[in-house]
Write a protein that binds this DNA or RNA. Structure first.
Lengths: 110, 110
DNA sequence: AATTAATATCGTAATATTGCAATATAAAAT
DNA sequence: ATTTTATATTGCAATATTACGATATTAATT
Protein backbone atom coordinates (compact mmCIF):
# COMPACT_ATOMS: atom_id res chain seq x y z
CA UNK A 1 0.00 0.00 0.00
CA UNK A 2 2.96 2.34 0.36
CA UNK A 3 1.65 3.90 3.56
CA UNK A 4 3.53 3.46 6.79
CA UNK A 5 1.42 2.75 9.87
CA UNK A 6 3.04 5.32 12.12
CA UNK A 7 0.39 5.01 14.82
CA UNK A 8 1.70 1.66 15.99
CA UNK A 9 5.13 2.93 16.91
CA UNK A 10 6.35 5.30 19.57
CA UNK A 11 6.99 8.94 18.70
CA UNK A 12 10.68 8.35 19.23
CA UNK A 13 10.69 5.48 16.78
CA UNK A 14 8.84 7.51 14.17
CA UNK A 15 11.05 10.54 14.61
CA UNK A 16 14.27 8.58 14.53
CA UNK A 17 13.17 6.63 11.46
CA UNK A 18 12.25 9.89 9.70
CA UNK A 19 15.75 11.22 10.29
CA UNK A 20 17.31 8.09 8.91
CA UNK A 21 15.00 8.16 5.94
CA UNK A 22 15.94 11.71 4.99
CA UNK A 23 19.63 10.84 5.29
CA UNK A 24 19.05 7.63 3.35
CA UNK A 25 19.61 9.00 -0.12
CA UNK A 26 23.05 9.26 -1.74
CA UNK A 27 22.33 12.71 -3.19
CA UNK A 28 21.58 14.03 0.27
CA UNK A 29 24.68 12.41 1.73
CA UNK A 30 26.70 13.93 -1.11
CA UNK A 31 25.14 17.33 -0.49
CA UNK A 32 25.99 17.22 3.20
CA UNK A 33 29.56 16.18 2.48
CA UNK A 34 29.95 18.91 -0.11
CA UNK A 35 28.68 21.54 2.30
CA UNK A 36 31.03 20.25 4.98
CA UNK A 37 34.05 20.39 2.69
CA UNK A 38 33.21 23.79 1.25
CA UNK A 39 31.94 25.19 4.56
CA UNK A 40 28.91 26.52 2.74
CA UNK A 41 27.47 26.53 -0.74
CA UNK A 42 24.65 27.67 -2.94
CA UNK A 43 22.18 25.53 -4.84
CA UNK A 44 23.88 26.05 -8.21
CA UNK A 45 27.20 24.76 -6.90
CA UNK A 46 25.46 21.50 -6.15
CA UNK A 47 23.78 21.37 -9.53
CA UNK A 48 27.21 21.50 -11.16
CA UNK A 49 28.83 19.20 -8.62
CA UNK A 50 26.19 16.46 -8.63
CA UNK A 51 24.82 16.70 -12.15
CA UNK A 52 21.20 16.69 -11.08
CA UNK A 53 18.64 19.18 -12.29
CA UNK A 54 18.23 22.38 -10.32
CA UNK A 55 14.71 21.44 -9.32
CA UNK A 56 15.93 18.13 -7.97
CA UNK A 57 18.70 19.68 -5.90
CA UNK A 58 16.29 22.24 -4.55
CA UNK A 59 13.97 19.45 -3.46
CA UNK A 60 16.74 17.56 -1.67
CA UNK A 61 17.81 20.75 0.09
CA UNK A 62 14.24 21.23 1.23
CA UNK A 63 14.17 17.79 2.80
CA UNK A 64 17.46 18.33 4.54
CA UNK A 65 16.16 21.65 5.84
CA UNK A 66 13.01 19.91 7.07
CA UNK A 67 15.01 17.95 9.64
CA UNK A 68 17.02 21.02 10.56
CA UNK A 69 20.42 19.59 9.67
CA UNK A 70 21.15 22.44 7.26
CA UNK A 71 20.17 26.03 7.25
CA UNK A 72 19.75 28.41 4.33
CA UNK A 73 20.04 32.17 4.48
CA UNK A 74 19.35 34.56 1.67
CA UNK A 75 22.37 36.40 0.34
CA UNK A 76 21.39 38.66 -2.47
CA UNK A 77 19.86 36.57 -5.19
CA UNK A 78 21.28 33.31 -3.95
CA UNK A 79 20.77 31.23 -0.82
CA UNK A 80 23.72 30.22 1.30
CA UNK A 81 23.39 26.77 2.80
CA UNK A 82 25.42 25.49 5.71
CA UNK A 83 25.40 22.82 8.39
CA UNK A 84 23.41 23.54 11.51
CA UNK A 85 25.99 22.27 13.93
CA UNK A 86 23.76 22.12 16.96
CA UNK A 87 21.38 19.78 15.15
CA UNK A 88 24.24 17.86 13.57
CA UNK A 89 25.73 17.10 16.98
CA UNK A 90 22.35 16.31 18.45
CA UNK A 91 21.79 13.76 15.70
CA UNK A 92 25.13 12.16 16.40
CA UNK A 93 24.11 11.79 20.03
CA UNK A 94 20.79 10.25 19.06
CA UNK A 95 22.51 7.78 16.79
CA UNK A 96 24.92 6.78 19.49
CA UNK A 97 22.13 6.47 22.01
CA UNK A 98 20.39 4.12 19.62
CA UNK A 99 23.46 2.02 18.96
CA UNK A 100 24.42 1.90 22.61
CA UNK A 101 21.11 0.30 23.52
CA UNK A 102 22.47 -3.02 22.39
CA UNK A 103 25.52 -2.76 24.59
CA UNK A 104 23.49 -2.78 27.77
CA UNK A 105 22.06 -6.17 26.98
CA UNK A 106 23.68 -9.58 27.22
CA UNK A 107 23.36 -11.03 23.79
CA UNK A 108 23.17 -14.72 23.97
CA UNK A 109 22.27 -15.62 20.49
CA UNK A 110 20.84 -18.41 18.45
CA UNK B 1 10.91 8.95 -12.11
CA UNK B 2 11.51 7.27 -8.77
CA UNK B 3 14.95 6.03 -9.79
CA UNK B 4 18.02 7.15 -7.92
CA UNK B 5 21.03 7.96 -10.07
CA UNK B 6 23.56 5.95 -8.08
CA UNK B 7 26.27 6.27 -10.73
CA UNK B 8 26.94 9.88 -9.85
CA UNK B 9 27.91 9.19 -6.26
CA UNK B 10 30.83 7.39 -4.71
CA UNK B 11 30.44 3.78 -3.62
CA UNK B 12 30.78 4.90 -0.04
CA UNK B 13 27.96 7.39 -0.42
CA UNK B 14 25.70 4.81 -2.02
CA UNK B 15 26.47 2.17 0.57
CA UNK B 16 26.04 4.50 3.50
CA UNK B 17 22.77 5.85 2.12
CA UNK B 18 21.50 2.29 1.65
CA UNK B 19 22.15 1.52 5.28
CA UNK B 20 20.33 4.61 6.40
CA UNK B 21 17.47 3.82 4.09
CA UNK B 22 16.96 0.35 5.51
CA UNK B 23 17.04 1.74 9.03
CA UNK B 24 14.72 4.56 8.01
CA UNK B 25 11.44 2.82 8.73
CA UNK B 26 9.76 2.81 12.14
CA UNK B 27 8.81 -0.87 11.90
CA UNK B 28 12.44 -1.80 11.36
CA UNK B 29 13.58 0.41 14.22
CA UNK B 30 10.91 -1.19 16.41
CA UNK B 31 12.01 -4.66 15.33
CA UNK B 32 15.63 -3.94 16.20
CA UNK B 33 14.68 -2.54 19.59
CA UNK B 34 12.46 -5.51 20.33
CA UNK B 35 15.23 -7.94 19.44
CA UNK B 36 17.64 -6.00 21.63
CA UNK B 37 15.32 -6.03 24.62
CA UNK B 38 14.34 -9.68 24.25
CA UNK B 39 17.84 -10.76 23.23
CA UNK B 40 16.30 -12.72 20.41
CA UNK B 41 12.90 -13.38 18.92
CA UNK B 42 10.95 -15.19 16.27
CA UNK B 43 8.86 -13.68 13.51
CA UNK B 44 5.54 -14.41 15.22
CA UNK B 45 6.57 -12.51 18.35
CA UNK B 46 6.94 -9.45 16.18
CA UNK B 47 3.61 -10.02 14.46
CA UNK B 48 1.92 -9.89 17.85
CA UNK B 49 4.08 -7.07 19.17
CA UNK B 50 3.79 -4.74 16.18
CA UNK B 51 0.38 -5.63 14.81
CA UNK B 52 1.54 -5.98 11.24
CA UNK B 53 0.73 -8.94 9.02
CA UNK B 54 3.11 -11.87 9.09
CA UNK B 55 4.09 -11.27 5.47
CA UNK B 56 4.96 -7.66 6.26
CA UNK B 57 7.14 -8.54 9.23
CA UNK B 58 8.89 -11.21 7.22
CA UNK B 59 9.67 -8.63 4.55
CA UNK B 60 11.11 -6.18 7.05
CA UNK B 61 13.25 -8.92 8.56
CA UNK B 62 14.53 -9.72 5.10
CA UNK B 63 15.64 -6.13 4.56
CA UNK B 64 17.35 -6.00 7.92
CA UNK B 65 19.11 -9.25 7.10
CA UNK B 66 20.18 -7.80 3.75
CA UNK B 67 22.41 -5.26 5.49
CA UNK B 68 23.69 -7.88 7.92
CA UNK B 69 22.51 -6.15 11.08
CA UNK B 70 20.46 -9.17 12.16
CA UNK B 71 20.96 -12.83 11.70
CA UNK B 72 18.41 -15.60 11.59
CA UNK B 73 19.02 -19.23 12.40
CA UNK B 74 16.57 -22.06 12.01
CA UNK B 75 15.40 -23.63 15.25
CA UNK B 76 12.94 -26.37 14.55
CA UNK B 77 10.01 -24.87 12.75
CA UNK B 78 10.78 -21.31 13.71
CA UNK B 79 13.62 -18.93 12.96
CA UNK B 80 15.51 -17.25 15.75
CA UNK B 81 16.56 -13.71 14.97
CA UNK B 82 19.20 -11.79 16.81
CA UNK B 83 21.51 -8.80 16.44
CA UNK B 84 24.77 -9.37 14.59
CA UNK B 85 26.92 -7.46 17.02
CA UNK B 86 29.97 -7.20 14.81
CA UNK B 87 27.94 -5.47 12.11
CA UNK B 88 26.04 -3.42 14.66
CA UNK B 89 29.27 -2.00 16.06
CA UNK B 90 30.72 -1.48 12.63
CA UNK B 91 27.67 0.58 11.69
CA UNK B 92 28.07 2.68 14.78
CA UNK B 93 31.64 3.41 13.77
CA UNK B 94 30.58 4.34 10.25
CA UNK B 95 27.95 6.69 11.59
CA UNK B 96 30.42 8.36 13.88
CA UNK B 97 32.96 8.64 11.09
CA UNK B 98 30.33 10.38 9.03
CA UNK B 99 29.30 12.75 11.77
CA UNK B 100 32.87 13.51 12.76
CA UNK B 101 33.67 14.77 9.28
CA UNK B 102 32.05 18.06 10.18
CA UNK B 103 34.16 18.51 13.29
CA UNK B 104 37.37 18.73 11.31
CA UNK B 105 36.17 21.77 9.43
CA UNK B 106 35.88 25.35 10.61
CA UNK B 107 32.30 26.25 10.03
CA UNK B 108 31.96 29.88 9.37
CA UNK B 109 28.43 30.16 8.29
CA UNK B 110 26.11 32.42 6.45
C1' DA C 1 11.91 49.25 -16.85
C1' DA C 2 14.00 45.29 -18.85
C1' DT C 3 17.22 41.71 -18.30
C1' DT C 4 19.83 38.44 -15.89
C1' DA C 5 20.69 35.13 -12.21
C1' DA C 6 19.47 32.04 -8.47
C1' DT C 7 16.15 29.50 -6.34
C1' DA C 8 11.52 27.58 -5.39
C1' DT C 9 7.31 25.44 -6.73
C1' DC C 10 4.10 22.87 -9.71
C1' DG C 11 2.83 19.19 -12.54
C1' DT C 12 3.92 14.90 -14.21
C1' DA C 13 6.07 10.36 -15.54
C1' DA C 14 8.70 6.53 -13.93
C1' DT C 15 9.90 3.77 -10.32
C1' DA C 16 10.02 2.21 -5.40
C1' DT C 17 7.97 1.06 -1.07
C1' DT C 18 4.54 -0.60 2.07
C1' DG C 19 1.25 -3.83 3.49
C1' DC C 20 -1.66 -7.67 2.94
C1' DA C 21 -4.09 -11.96 1.31
C1' DA C 22 -3.11 -16.10 -0.68
C1' DT C 23 -0.06 -19.58 -1.34
C1' DA C 24 4.24 -22.28 -0.78
C1' DT C 25 7.59 -24.54 2.13
C1' DA C 26 9.37 -27.05 5.88
C1' DA C 27 9.61 -29.00 10.42
C1' DA C 28 7.19 -30.81 14.46
C1' DA C 29 3.23 -33.00 16.52
C1' DT C 30 -0.59 -36.06 16.28
C1' DA D 1 0.33 -39.82 6.67
C1' DT D 2 -2.11 -35.88 8.18
C1' DT D 3 -2.37 -31.86 10.66
C1' DT D 4 -0.45 -28.03 12.88
C1' DT D 5 2.86 -24.29 13.34
C1' DA D 6 6.14 -20.88 11.74
C1' DT D 7 8.07 -18.57 8.10
C1' DA D 8 8.90 -17.19 3.25
C1' DT D 9 7.35 -15.89 -1.24
C1' DT D 10 4.24 -14.16 -4.78
C1' DG D 11 1.05 -10.99 -6.66
C1' DC D 12 -1.24 -6.96 -6.20
C1' DA D 13 -3.27 -2.31 -4.82
C1' DA D 14 -2.29 2.02 -2.61
C1' DT D 15 0.87 5.34 -1.71
C1' DA D 16 5.54 7.56 -1.74
C1' DT D 17 9.75 8.98 -3.87
C1' DT D 18 12.73 10.60 -7.43
C1' DA D 19 13.80 13.43 -11.19
C1' DC D 20 12.85 16.83 -14.47
C1' DG D 21 10.79 20.51 -17.50
C1' DA D 22 8.18 24.47 -17.15
C1' DT D 23 6.99 28.19 -14.68
C1' DA D 24 6.95 31.40 -10.72
C1' DT D 25 9.46 34.50 -7.62
C1' DT D 26 12.83 37.60 -6.06
C1' DA D 27 16.94 40.34 -6.08
C1' DA D 28 20.71 42.34 -8.55
C1' DT D 29 22.40 44.35 -12.85
C1' DT D 30 22.10 46.97 -16.95
Amino acid sequence: MGITKTDMYTDDQNKFASLLKVLGHPARIAILQYIINQEKCICNDLVEELGLAQATISQHLKELKSIGIIQGSIEGKSVCYCIEEKVWNQFQEEFNAFFNQAVKVNHQCC
